[in-house]
Design a protein around this nucleic acid. Structure first.
Lengths: 197, 197
DNA sequence: ATCTATACCGAACGTCCAGTCAGTATTGTA
DNA sequence: TACAATACTGACTGGACGTTCGGTATAGAT
């Protein structure tokens, strides 16, 4: 890797970092390429040299983030013994993400906007599948270990995803404490339900 | 009510109906005022005569819809005896809404877009509060009747809202059968949890 | 018949913004 | 040094779109 490539990589990262900050502050649509130009000192053309499009840039950030999340998780799984503990840990981590990583806000603004390239759409679908698979694996594990009632892990995975997605959304109008509480409550309900025996 | 007022009211309704259809088809942002002009035969100016803004028009549709939902619910509550039955009924109705009333799609595209008037924002908050109150009341009822475990109805209401919201979102990439199933599963999990005793 | 308020029209305006491109600068290579 | 590839610039394009506003038509009141 010679100096030119290095420089290039740094520039790309610089753009990514600035863009992330702006998307976090102002949301996806409200952040214009010009804003990013202003924040980086890089030119418009250069941004388009490093990233295919605004969508592409944003997707890059999302995937980067998703990847980091996975790494964090893999590093900390071993801390938890039972699947129940793991579930709570996931909730904890997601709650922290909502709080510390407000890219989520811009993210689902983005995910809801109508105008998507088919490429973007397919990459989004991939991510979705990955999440469901993650949930399913966790649930299956719990079922096999006898912690959870026997059930269709695939269907439950969807329910769990819905819960997390919804919690993520509602956390926007909640304070930090409430957010943490919501995620915990949600997992508790998921595990124990609310019906009297 | 004289002829003029009547005509006026009809026009407003005509605009609302056409706009709804377009929002459903194309989403919020992708539907332009010109599209609505094209679909109604009414002029741009006339639309702005009847509605304050595009946002205002959309909000009008949402509130109309919310109101109808409430009416439907009030008409059918008496069919259900236990709170459990009611919860499933709510889920059923919401699932049907997702399927039949795809304004939901445009709705949360709208709800996620950054640029909102403070008035719109407060009206959205109102609706949110109303939903939570609805959930809370239902849960409280179930707790008092002994159907549900004693618990903090307010916090559970938030969890329930999160579940419904998430289910609504995930239903987009699911077929009709899966959607119904998801809602049912979600309520079942909410009631019974998945943990082994 | 005259007046007035309401309903309606649609061209024009101003703004915003993603993306392009012809050209320049810098670094690596032969 | 000459050539090429890569990195970068920023003025410009082209089009979308919400909103306004001067003006017209119509129905009811006086």
């Amino acid at each position: 890797m010679n100096q030119k490539q290095l420089q290039s990589e740094q520039t790309k990262k610089k753009i990514a970092v600035a863009a992330r900050a702006l998307f976090v502050q102002k949301g996806y649509k409200a952040t214009s390429i010009e804003d990013i130009v202003g924040a980086t000192g890089s030119s418009k053309g250069n941004i388009y040299y490093h990233f295919k499009s605004k969508e592409g840039l944003f997707l890059y950030l999302i995937e980067e983030w998703d990847h980091e999340w996975e790494l964090n998780w893999e590093q900390s799984v071993h801390l938890y013994r039972t699947t129940t503990e793991k579930l709570y840990a996931v909730a904890e981590q997601l709650a922290a993400d909502d709080l510390n990583h407000p890219l989520t806000k811009a993210a689902d603004e983005f995910f809801h906007n109508e105008e998507k390239t088919s490429e973007v759409e397919s990459r989004m679908a991939e991510m979705n599948v990955k999440h469901l698979a993650f949930n399913q694996k966790l649930l299956q594990e719990g079922i096999e270990s006898g912690e959870f009632k026997p059930g269709d892990a695939e269907r439950l995975a969807v329910v769990l995803e819905a819960i997390f997605f919804g919690a993520n959304h509602l956390s926007r109008s909640l304070g930090p404490d409430m957010t943490t509480m919501l995620y915990r409550d949600a997992v508790t309900v998921f595990l124990n339900g609310i019906a009297e025996e």
